[in-house]
Amino acid sequence: MASRLSEMKGMIGDYLPGLPRSAPRFVTEDGTRVFGVIATFSTTPAVVHAAELVRDAGYRKWDLNSPFPIHDIENSMGFRKTQLPYHVFGAAMFGVLLAAALQWFTNHFDYQTGEGFGYIVQGKPTSAWEAYVPIMFELGVLHAAFAALFGMLMLNGLPRWNHPLFSSESFLRTSDDRFVIGIEANDPSFDPEATKRLLEEAGAETVELIEEDA
């Protein structure tokens, strides 16, 4: 339980600046945290083939960068379904319940005990559920929209000022004439030697270790 809690704290620290980060899985000799390895490829078939090998090796935290969209790459990379809809659904239900509770307590429950608003419109009882529905709908939609937008950003690790990959010259060539597969060090299957070997066997032209700044 305690370890799970510190793990979650670390995840929040990885996302929000100024908080203690999670313990690094791998460090270089001078102590900087390893972000992962990247491998460059110069043809589309090579990178698609390599993506299939990386997918089949069971990696989950990795990405492929390309100067242009590659058709059907989501299958070669084994994209999993996003968990975002569940967050949105949960947030919407929370909004609905929040609105119902908010109105019932302030307009009906507190009013019974001598406080609260007790708005009586058209002679309707203060506990009439019909009057609560528009607010329940609106707060449900509002929470769903917030969860969709901000949940998407958080799951993508956004917003952020910089990215460790930007320090690599060969990564920057993905906007020109190279394809890059990058595997992150916090992937459970990541191993500096084995991952490097896998990428080399998959036909990588160069394999490079990426460190995080400071």
């Binding site: 058209q122 309707k124 009057a131």
Partner: peptide
Amino acid sequence: AFSQYFLIWYGN
């Protein structure tokens, strides 16, 4: 359906 019911309920 709710919009119809709601306005009629409130309008009375």
